[in-house]
C-alpha cells in the first residue's frame, strides 16, 4: 500500500506517494529528480548516496522512503542554495576529485564534518570521511583541501 509522506526537501515542503519497498535513494533519483546522490553499492558500503537527514549524514540507500515522513532531507543540491560553497571552490583548486562520481557524497560528508568540527585534525577528517569510497584520487587531495580550507578559517 502506498503512503503519502510529507517532508522537507532542500528547504521546500514536499508531499509524495511512496511504496513500502521504495528506498529514499530510489525516490530521490527517480521521483524527485535529485541526481547528486549516486548508486554505488546500494547496501551502505560506498557512501556515494550520502545525504543529510535532519542535519546528520546518512546513506540514503539504507533508508526506506516512508521513514522520512516528517523529516528534513538535504542533498548537495540543497547545500548550494546560495551558490557554490567555499569548500567546493577549494576542492576544485586542489583537484579533490577525478571521475566525480563519489564527489557529491564526499561533499555532504565534508559539510557535516565541518559543521560539527570547524577545525578538524587530519585524523578527524579521515575518520569523518571513512564511509565514503573513492577509487580515483587516493583520498589525499580531498583531505588536503579540507586541511587547507580550515587553516584559512581558523
Amino acid at each position: 500500500m502506498k503512503n503519502k509522506i510529507s517532508f522537507i526537501l532542500n528547504g521546500e515542503k514536499r508531499q509524495l506517494e511512496v511504496g513500502p519497498q521504495d528506498t529514499l535513494l530510489e525516490v530521490l533519483r527517480t521521483k524527485l529528480g535529485i541526481t547528486s546522490p549516486k548508486v554505488g553499492c546500494d547496501r551502505g558500503d560506498c557512501g556515494a548516496c550520502t545525504i543529510l537527514l535532519n542535519g546528520d549524514t546518512v546513506k540514503s540507500c539504507l533508508i526506506l522512503a516512508n521513514e522520512i515522513d516528517g523529516q528534513e532531507v538535504t542533498t548537495l543540491e540543497g547545500l548550494m542554495e546560495h551558490g557554490i560553497l567555499p569548500i567546493q571552490e577549494k576542492m576544485v583548486e586542489k583537484n579533490s576529485f577525478q571521475c566525480g562520481y563519489c564527489t557529491p557524497g564526499f561533499l555532504v560528508s565534508t559539510h557535516a564534518l565541518l559543521k560539527k568540527t570547524p577545525c578538524p585534525t587530519k585524523e578527524e577528517i579521515k575518520e569523518g570521511l571513512a564511509g565514503n569510497l573513492c577509487r580515483c584520487t587516493g583520498y589525499t587531495p580531498i583531505i588536503d583541501a579540507i586541511i587547507d580550507f580550515t587553516k584559512k578559517n581558523s
Partner: peptide
C-alpha cells in the same frame, strides 16, 4: 561505538 562502520551508518 567508534569502531562501528562509519559516521553515516553510526548516525542511524
Amino acid at each position: 561505538a567508534k569502531t562501528v562502520a562509519s559516521v553515516a551508518v553510526r548516525n542511524r
